[in-house]
Computed example of a mutant assay.
Amino acid sequence: MARGIFYVETWPSAPEREAEYNHWYDHVHLPDVCSVEGFVGARRYAPADGNGPHVAIYEIEADDLQGAVQRLLAAFDAGEFRMSDAIQTDPPPVTRLLRLITTHDTAAARTSSPGES
Rank of each mutant, 00 (worst) to 15 (best):
L100E: 04
A2C: 14
A14W: 15
R110G: 07
I5S: 01
P93S: 00
H29Q: 03
D49V: 08
L98G: 08
G41C: 08
R110S: 07
W11D: 03
A78S: 01
P92Y: 03
G4A: 05
R110Y: 11
N51K: 13
E80S: 14
A46Y: 11
V40N: 00
A62G: 05
L72K: 02
T102Y: 13
V55P: 05
L30I: 06
V8F: 12
A56P: 14
Q88M: 15
G79Q: 00
V40S: 01
P12T: 01
V28D: 04
I87K: 10
A108T: 05
D63T: 02
R3A: 00
A56M: 13
R3L: 01
A19D: 04
P114F: 09
S113I: 14
Y45C: 08
V36I: 15
D49E: 00
P15W: 05
E16Q: 05
A56Q: 12
A109H: 14
F76S: 01
D32P: 02
A86S: 08
I60A: 00
S84L: 11
S84P: 09
E16V: 08
P12R: 13
A108R: 11
Y25S: 05
S112C: 09
Q66R: 05
W11Y: 15
F6D: 00
D105W: 14
H29E: 04
A48L: 10
I60E: 04
A108F: 11
D77A: 02
W24C: 00
T10P: 06
H104T: 13
M83P: 04
D90G: 07
P114N: 03
L100A: 06
A107N: 10
V55N: 01
A2Y: 13
A107S: 11
A14E: 05
R71T: 06
P91R: 04
P53A: 01
R110M: 09
A2W: 14
V8P: 12
D105T: 13
T103C: 12
R99G: 09
E37K: 13
